[in-house]
Design a protein around this nucleic acid. Structure first.
Length: 573
RNA sequence: GCCCCGGUGGUGUAGCCCGGUCAAACAUGCGGGCCUUUCGAGCCCGCGCCCCGGGUUCAAAUCCCGGCCGGGGCACCA
């Protein structure tokens, strides 16, 4: 094909795609993009393109189409075949099938939430993708400031399982103190660590000036002796700490000779009790464990990026290879508090029902709201491993969840804030038979019986609609003419049974209930938890934990079924 | 103050490493229509984005420099 013809082809295509006007820049791009051999000749080609584009633009659309059909009929044949967007995670750097080991290392000092879920889900997904191993390790090495609590160990495991995790190994840092001791001792012996008995303020001052503290250069024998004193109680809390030697001139003062182990006088640790008084700090325990457990890939938030710098010193001293790391940004969800300390305070102050309060972003709260585990996983996989922080929107989570839940959720009528509607003109009983799911009639029906002389109830939410309508259809029952509408009650008159008639007149359709059992729906709205009381159709066969749709109201999860009432939690529209 | 990261429609992501096929894709959202005994689902049409300024180049979302904005770290916390 001649160069001119190639240009003509793209110019015609471009023109046809843009209302008959081709753009020479775009055409040049296409020509050069698909014919790399022409690139060196770009300078000569450009004037040619401009010329041809001018010619093309002076043609009518019909002529353009005709010309293109002559030289490149394929254009018209290959209609758009939808290019499927690639979903899922990108390949993991340095990953080998069967050899990927990942871990999730939470501190069990609070419930697992969506923010932690990012690292957890990515770790687990990649372990599965590569046929590797996923380890859960409780980083419970702070019996004081971020004190672990027994219940959270169980909850985290429960939540991970609920998310569909296969946990290959579970470890607790608090079981492994002697291991950390051995490595600490080794580093002291190697002269790569030292016992510092400076007062914290003094050390900080020296550190900021890039100066060594007086203990740093003492010989290993002295260090080991000091270490024994730490272990056997001669030093008290705050009096001594083991530091890892680093570069004292490291630009980030926080990296310089960071602390590895410290003393806690009366730890009363939930698992280890008072058996140990020397406890490792996060960076030390984590560094040792990642190596010991054979971790190959670490996923963690950006806030840990600097810790990698610190931990690498330990790896270098021992000649270990540092795992591949992926640092992702923070994940939050629109308008929801994820912070453990704020959540805890809210619970203590009685503002929240507990760690699973539907307003919260904990996994249990989401579960309680009727969010499916697959939806959470999907949203996190979609967000991926980006380094920038992301705030996922409820709309998005809800849309994913709705797709999951819609086909399985049975439908029921729930009338919020009921208002009686008295209907005259129909003197027989009438039973409406309504499918549990409109798309799956095989699942069965529910029955709602209209009895002459007794009112049906409709929702106050529909009052406005009722006020401006002359006729209305009670869904699956019959059509009525509205005579009087107020929030005290509604007077109506039977019009007709036929659905077609309502359709023809475009009458609105509302749900209703002849009698019902009391039902409360808790609706999280930002930091408020709104309770809507109403009536659920009497024979609704709902079970705790089931997600159902209250028609024209939204999807809810049944939270409680009691003799006197049913409690549901609103998920989304 | 010092040290790291980021910045693509309202939101989330793809594209950036390796410049051209990007007149920028997908999802969600929003607007409209069709369908449907739900305001749900489904189908169709439409709206809407490369943070700013310079530079390199025939050509920049992509490379370089500067700015602005945002996030994180600077604990004997994790």
């Amino acid at each position: 094909m001649h160069v001119e013809e190639v240009i003509l082809k793209y110019a015609l295509i471009n023109a046809l795609q843009h209302n008959g006007r081709a753009n020479s820049k775009a055409v040049i791009g296409k020509v050069l993009g698909e014919n790399p051999e022409l690139r060196p000749k770009a300078r000569e080609i450009i004037p040619l393109v401009n010329e041809i584009v001018n010619q093309v633009n002076s043609m009518g659309v019909e002529e353009q189409r005709k010309r293109l059909r002559e030289i490149y009929p394929e254009f018209f044949e290959s209609k758009k075949e939808k290019k499927g967007e690639k979903k899922g995670l990108p390949p993991l750097p340095k990953a080998e099938r069967g050899k990927v080991v990942t871990r999730f290392a939470p501190n069990p000092d609070g419930a697992f939430h969506l923010g932690n879920a990012r690292a957890a889900i990515l770790s687990h997904e990649y372990a599965r993708i590569y046929g590797g191993k996923f380890i859960l390790r409780f980083d419970d090495t702070d019996p004081k400031v971020k004190r672990p609590e027994p219940i959270f160990y169980d909850w985290i495991i429960e939540d991970l399982r609920w998310l569909g995790f296969q946990i290959d190994e579970i470890h607790c840092a608090s079981d492994r103190l002697e291991l950390y001791y051995r490595y600490a001792e080794e580093l002291l012996r190697m002269g790569k660590a030292y016992v510092c008995t400076c007062r914290p303020e003094d050390f900080k001052k020296l550190r900021d000036e890039g100066k060594a503290c007086p203990h740093r250069e003492l010989p290993p024998e002295v260090q080991l002796e000091e270490w024994r004193k730490m272990l056997n109680g001669e030093y008290r809390e705050g009096e001594a700490v083991v530091r890892i030697k680093t570069d004292l001139s490291h630009p980030n003062p926080a990296v310089r000779d960071w602390p590895a182990l410290r003393i806690i006088d009366n730890p009363d640790h939930p698992r280890a009790g008072n058996k140990y008084r020397v406890w490792p700090l996060y960076n030390f325990a984590s560094a040792i464990d990642d190596h010991e457990l054979g971790v190959t890939h670490i996923f963690r938030g950006q806030e840990h990026a600097e810790n990698e710098t610190r931990q690498r010193y330990v790896y270098n001293y021992f000649g270990w290879e540092y795992p591949a790391t992926v640092h992702h940004g923070r994940l939050s969800i629109e308008g929801v508090i994820l912070s453990k300390s704020k959540t805890r305070r809210g619970i203590e102050e009685g503002r929240y029902l507990g760690w699973d309060d539907p307003r919260l972003g904990t996994i249990r709260a989401l579960r309680r709201r009727g969010i499916r585990p697959e939806a959470i996983k999907e949203v996190i996989i979609e967000v991926g491993l980006k380094r920038s922080d992301t705030t996922i929107s409820w709309d998005n989570l809800a849309a994913i969840n709705r797709k999951l839940v819609d086909p399985v959720a049975n439908r029921y009528f729930f009338v919020a804030d009921p208002i009686p509607m008295h209907i005259r003109g129909y003197d027989e009983e009438f039973t409406a038979r309504v499918p549990l799911h409109p798309d799956h009639p095989e699942r069965g029906y529910r029955e709602l019986k209209f009895t002459p002389g007794k009112p049906v109830y409709v929702s106050r939410d529909d009052l406005e609609l009722l006020g401006k309508s002359e006729y209305i259809r009670l869904k699956d029952l019959f059509n009525v003419k509205l005579l009087k509408v107020s929030d005290k009650g509604i007077e109506a008159e039977f019009d007709s049974i036929d659905y077609e008639r309502a359709k023809e007149h475009r009458w609105h359709m509302i749900h209703w209930v002849p009698e019902g059992k009391p039902c409360e729906v808790l609706i999280p709205e930002g930091d408020e938890l709104v309770t809507r009381k109403g009536l659920l159709e009497k024979h609704a066969d709902v079970k705790v934990d089931e997600v159902v749709q209250f028609e024209r109201f939204g999807f809810v999860r049944i939270d409680e079924v009691r003799v006197d009432k049913i409690v549901a939690i609103f998920a989304h529209k």
